[in-house]
């Protein structure tokens, strides 16, 4: 891939940018993993899980910048996952192929807590306008003024008031024992 997407673009969660990376390095990863006794479906599972880990690490700020390229980082995660799978199946591996793995913390994706699972269910029940404003602010990283312009709000105070109403709705929907 000639031009990898920038970390700034990736931080906004742009699905196109992640797809470009996925397609850009897919064949190279399959070619690497095919040296081992592992079928293509399993390779693709590993590759997809690695992309998801990349997304999560970028969005949670675990990656501030890529020390070399996104490809190196992605393959680091992929190789670790592949190694774990092969080791679990007691298959032979070339140690040299796996000596640039990422740390365990960067490889594993995290599961939601029970409280977060409940919050997710309630979030999905919110109206479009609420879901949109909360996504723009909390996920895509737009500031209040940028949301005002993007979503056609009258002024910044209206955005703040709407966001606050949506959060209040979520709080009310949650079990008061969790958020008293």
């Amino acid at each position: 891939m000639k031009n990898e997407p920038s970390i700034t673009t990736l931080r906004t969660g742009d699905s196109v940018a992640y797809q470009v990376i996925y397609e850009g390095y897919r064949d190279a990863f399959i070619a690497f993993a095919s040296k081992y006794d592992i079928d293509q479906d399993a390779i693709l599972d590993v590759y997809q899980e690695s992309m998801i880990a990349l997304y999560e690490n970028v969005m949670k700020g675990k990656v501030k910048d890529f020390s070399s390229t996104i490809k190196t980082y992605l393959f680091g995660i992929g190789k670790f996952k592949l190694y774990e799978q092969l080791r679990a199946q007691k298959k032979m591996v070339l140690v040299d192929d796996f000596n640039d793995q990422e740390t365990m913390e960067e490889v594993e994706t995290t599961a939601l807590t029970e409280r977060q699972k409940a919050l997710k269910q309630h979030f999905q029940k919110l109206g479009d306008r609420c879901r949109n404003i909360l996504e723009l602010f909390y996920l895509n990283g737009l500031k209040i003024k940028e949301i005002m312009i993007a979503a056609n709000y009258e002024n910044e105070n209206t955005v703040k008031a709407q966001k606050s109403r949506c959060l209040k709705q979520l709080k009310t929907m949650m079990n008061p024992q969790n958020y008293g």
Binding site: S15, E56, R115, L119, L170
Partner: peptide
């Protein structure tokens, strides 16, 4: 309390994003 809710919401939205990305790869 609000801060904790907003931190959780941030994590939840990333999780929603992960699901949607996974689906995008599967569709591809």
């Amino acid at each position: 309390a609000n801060f904790e809710l907003e931190k959780d919401l941030h994590t939840v939205l990333i999780d929603v994003g992960k699901e949607s990305l996974k689906q995008q790869f599967v569709d591809f």
